[in-house]
């Protein structure tokens, strides 16, 4: 039996306290056919995502009767289950059993594809939507300088200029912790903390964003799978990550390109004209997406990398905080 500490009140069905090698886990009732499993505390810790995806994979592989699907996010898994067949207590017990059987965190190896996406920075499409925003929504938005969000992004993060911001975006691998909100929209986090840009959101939100736009809010980078409203600071445009018409081999099995656990890098850097050509090649089937399908992610190795780069990452974080304090927010 799982060691519940008795803190079951309201929607908290069970709390399993932290102990050697594992963080606290809270099980929350999320309606009559969902349960939310939360790891650790409400703080941003990318390593929680590795635990989440490890357990998520185990849940998928196990095939528990009555379990319908799981939705991993940065520090949680939302479990969709059939409560007419599987009682909440049984589900909690099954999750605990699976979690206990996982190999030690430091030895986890997670299947993690490597994908690189060409990017056009400060492209004409995002600039056009930003111009519409200035014209129709907010004339004095402090996050828009010279018709783009890049210069503001550099200022807010204490970087030299827009050019340095672009270098930062390309310097790190981005970890896909979750897919959601819109079909195929990845929530990407920087694995190299030395380049971890942070930005506030638009205020008010922007009614338009081009499909393929790349933006950042908080520590998170998103690629817009469809043209839509949005709140992230935009800095470029890439190739399609969602194609409902499945016009390229990358979409043959699934119109959605990215999955939780993928690693994305941005490059090569291309002009607007080159991006148009590549996008056409995507749709006529001649472009081949750059995907290493067999790559894996070694958690122990990554934890050592984090330790090695800790001081530099801390230095950047301090620089950012100072810069953010003297920069207006939208």
């Amino acid at each position: 039996m799982a060691q519940h500490d008795g803190q079951t009140s309201g929607v908290i069905l069970a709390t399993v306290p932290a102990r050697e090698g594992r963080p606290k886990i809270v099980y929350r009732q999320a309606g009559d056919r969902f349960m939310l499993v939360e790891f650790g505390d409400m703080e941003f810790d990318l390593t929680m995502s590795f635990r989440v995806l490890g357990l998520n994979q185990a849940l998928k592989d196990h095939g528990l009767d009555g379990l319908i699907e799981t939705v991993p996010a940065i520090r949680s898994i939302l479990i969709h289950y059939d409560s007419t067949r599987l009682k909440p207590d049984r589900l909690i017990q099954a999750v605990e059993d699976l979690y206990e059987q996982l190999p030690p965190f430091e030895t986890l190896t997670i299947p993690s594809r490597r994908i690189s996406l060409p990017i056009a920075f400060n492209d004409r499409w995002t600039r056009a939507d930003i111009a519409r925003y200035v014209e129709h929504i907010r004339k004095d938005a402090p996050n828009i300088i010279n018709g783009n969000n890049l210069e503001y992004g550099a200022m807010y993060n204490g970087l030299r200029d827009a050019e340095e911001l672009m270098e930062y975006v390309m310097a790190t691998e981005w970890w896909s912790a979750a897919i959601g909100f819109f079909p195929g929209l990845p929530f990407l986090y920087p694995l190299d903390r030395r380049y971890a840009i942070v930005l506030p959101k638009y205020n008010p939100t922007r009614p338009w964003t081009p499909e393929g736009a790349v933006g950042i809010a908080g520590p998170c980078l998103a690629i817009y799978p469809v043209a839509s409203a949005g709140g992230y600071q935009l800095f470029g445009r890439t190739i399609p990550i969602y194609d409902p018409k499945q016009r390229n081999a990358a979409f043959a099995e699934n119109p959605i390109l990215l999955r939780p656990g993928d690693r994305v890098t941005f490059g090569p850097r291309v002009s607007d004209e080159e991006l148009i050509e590549i996008r056409e090649a995507v749709y006529n089937g001649t472009y081949e997406y750059q995907i290493d399908h067999d790559a894996t992610f070694d958690v122990g190795e990554y934890l050592r990398f984090l330790e090695e780069t800790r001081e530099e990452a801390e230095a950047f974080r301090r620089r950012q905080e100072e810069a953010a304090q003297r920069t207006p927010v939208p």
Binding site: A30, F44, A73, S76
Partner: peptide
């Protein structure tokens, strides 16, 4: 909302149940 944002309705992103 702490690290997730200024307003107490903010949390770190998580999955939403259908009908939430």
């Amino acid at each position: 909302g702490g690290v997730a944002g200024g307003h107490p309705s903010n949390i770190l992103d998580n999955g939403y149940p259908v009908g939430a």
